[in-house]
Computed example of a mutant assay.
Amino acid sequence: MSVPAEITASKQINLTTYRKDGTPVPTPVWHVVQGNTLTTVSGADAWKVKRIRNNPQVEVTACDIRGKVAPGARSVRGTAVLLPLTETENARRLMESRYVSARIGGWFTRVFHIKRPAAVGIVITL
C-alpha cells in the first residue's frame, strides 16, 4: 500500500500506538516518507517505543503540530520496526533533510560535539 498524499504532505503525523490493554495512544511526530514506509526518530526511553516493542501494530493520521486531526482525515494502519543504533543515525539524517530545526540541531551536535540522548529510529511499513 502506498502512503496517502495527505500524510506525505503533512509536516506531522499522529503515530498511534497501543497499550497492553488495547488503549490507543496518539502522539504527534515528524516523519519522512520513502516509498511505502514512514521513518521517524524518538527517544529510546519514550513510552511509544516501549509500546511498539510490545505491539508493533500502529496507525498514522495526518495532524497539526499539536496533534489535532482534521475532520475526515484518513488513518492508515501499519507495522512499526525499531531500528538498531547504526541505522538510527541514518534516520536522523533523513529527518534533517526535511526539517530545518532538526538540521540546525544536528549541525550543532556535530560541530560542538554535544552528546545527544539515546534515540531509536522507527520505520513504519503501511
Rank of each mutant, 00 (worst) to 15 (best):
I7F: 14
T8N: 11
G106A: 05
G35P: 14
V3P: 09
A62G: 11
G43T: 10
I104K: 15
V3N: 09
W47I: 00
H113L: 13
S10Y: 08
A46N: 08
G106T: 07
R98H: 08
N36P: 11
R51W: 00
T79G: 04
G105I: 03
I122A: 08
S97N: 11
A44F: 03
L38A: 09
N36D: 11
D45Q: 15
P117H: 15
I114H: 14
Q34P: 06
R66F: 05
L38R: 09
I65K: 15
L83Q: 12
G105T: 04
I13G: 03
Y99G: 04
V81G: 01
M95R: 11
A46E: 02
P71C: 03
W47F: 06
A118I: 04
A9P: 03
Q57L: 02
T27M: 01
L85V: 05
V29D: 01
Y18R: 08
V33L: 11
F108M: 15
R93D: 00
P4A: 15
R51L: 00
T109E: 09
A70S: 13
T16G: 02
L94E: 03
V111C: 13
L82H: 14
S42Q: 10
I104H: 09
A44Q: 07
R98N: 05
T23I: 04
V32Y: 07
E87S: 04
R53I: 00
E6N: 13
K20D: 01
F112E: 02
E59D: 05
T27W: 00
T23S: 12
R103I: 01
Q34E: 15
Q12M: 11
V111W: 14
T37F: 07
A91V: 01
P4K: 15
A118G: 12
V81A: 09
G22C: 11
P28D: 10
L85G: 05
V49N: 05
S97P: 07
V69G: 06
P56A: 07
I7H: 13
F108C: 13
V41Q: 03
I124V: 15
Y18C: 01
L38V: 12
T86N: 03
V58R: 05
L126A: 08
V120D: 00
T23K: 12
Q57V: 01
S75H: 15
T125A: 08
T16L: 04
K48W: 02
A70H: 11
L15I: 03
S42K: 08
T40K: 09
W47A: 02
Q57R: 13
V60I: 14
N14C: 12
P4S: 14
T37P: 08
A9T: 06
S75M: 12
N14F: 06
G43N: 10
D45N: 15
A9H: 13
G67T: 06
R92G: 02
E87M: 06
A102G: 06
